[in-house]
Design a protein around this nucleic acid. Structure first.
Lengths: 182, 182
DNA sequence: TGGCTCATGTAATCTGTTACATGATTCT
DNA sequence: AGAATCATGTAACAGATTACATGAGCCA
């Protein structure tokens, strides 16, 4: 019942950085924030309307490069609500890894098929890790935007998680290899 | 539309280990599997009925210690379905950390309040880590159950994640301290 | 006796995704 | 010309949680 509508605060948070469109928000969620958050248009646009209705944000219709867009900005009321939420204790940090689920039940299909999931997991992280690392490096030297420090720390968290995950994958592979030899 | 009802496979997976009640399943999800999965009675019990209807599992009503319970077992058909799913590629590994969200927007409330979340995050992991480590140790020496190997590897993943997270927390704290001094 | 755990279940509700519709502009 | 991207939006559906109801046994 603690009706904490997260999407509301994600939007308010993004608008606390700078005014933008719903489309822009989706892009940020798909890139910068994808490590720890996600969202679809089907939840972004209705939430924008709700936030506008309760005066947490205001909208501004403009045309840029011949494209109609609605640029949203946060109001004082919205900033207040955001800050209040930010100061509240965290309710839930959730990890939902299908890979771990399939590993947990791996005995049912055996090591070979299970290792395919582990390898895919490792490959995925190795693909993302370089970009994540370079983000950290770029943001680290950047003192123009105070928000970038916070962004850098979340990216660094990603780097640490992915590095630890990759190490774990290597261990799992060796573990199963060792068993094979026996 | 790739209607992958995960809860079905979680239940089939648990029953592939051993027969048990819905209540038992919930307990395992709250403990052993909580690292990478969760579920409520409101999704467990209806799914059990569906799985029984399509003959993936069978139920057995008994009384133990004067308590009525319904013990479910997996059928050959259910095991087939489970194996087919386990062999399919993983669709989604998702991390949803409110702590990272609040850190990402931390500029809005400043370092002091943000650090409270980081500290809480670290404390939580430091509370869980010892149990997780001892699970790994216990399972590591245990060769009685072949499923325990897979369980051990998921627990080890937890250990690696938590250790890396704690290190990251220490870094974040030092990072902000360093800024303070400047 | 009272509170906790064992045990099963449902109704209301929420939250979110998917898939589609629409149409303009930019890139190749 | 055609594909991809920019940009907004909705309807249908999926999936899950919360809160409640019920009742028995165990422990202090």
């Amino acid at each position: 019942m603690a009706n904490e509508n997260k999407m509301e605060f994600v939007i308010l948070g993004l608008l606390s950085h700078t005014p933008m469109t719903g489309y822009d928000m989706k892009k940020i969620m798909d890139t910068t924030m994808s490590l720890f958050w996600s969202g679809s248009y089907g939840s972004i646009y209705p939430t924008l309307q709700r936030l506008r209705d309760n005066e947490s944000i205001v909208s501004n219709e403009t045309t840029e490069n011949g494209r109609d867009k609605i640029i949203y900005s946060i109001t004082d009321k919205g900033r207040d609500r955001l800050q209040q939420w930010l100061k509240k204790p965290v309710i839930k940090d959730e990890l939902r890894y299908e890979t771990m689920l399939k590993l947990f039940f791996g005995n049912e299909i055996g090591e070979e098929d299970t290792l395919k999931h582990i390898q895919e997991f490792e490959d995925k992280m190795k693909r993302i890790l370089p970009d994540l690392k370079s983000s950290v490096d770029i943001l680290n030297g950047d003192v123009t935007e105070p928000t970038h420090e916070y962004y850098m720390l979340t990216a660094l968290f990603g780097v640490k998680m992915y590095e630890a995950s990759i190490e774990w994958c290597e261990f799992v592979k060796k573990y199963f290899e060792g068993k094979q030899v026996k």
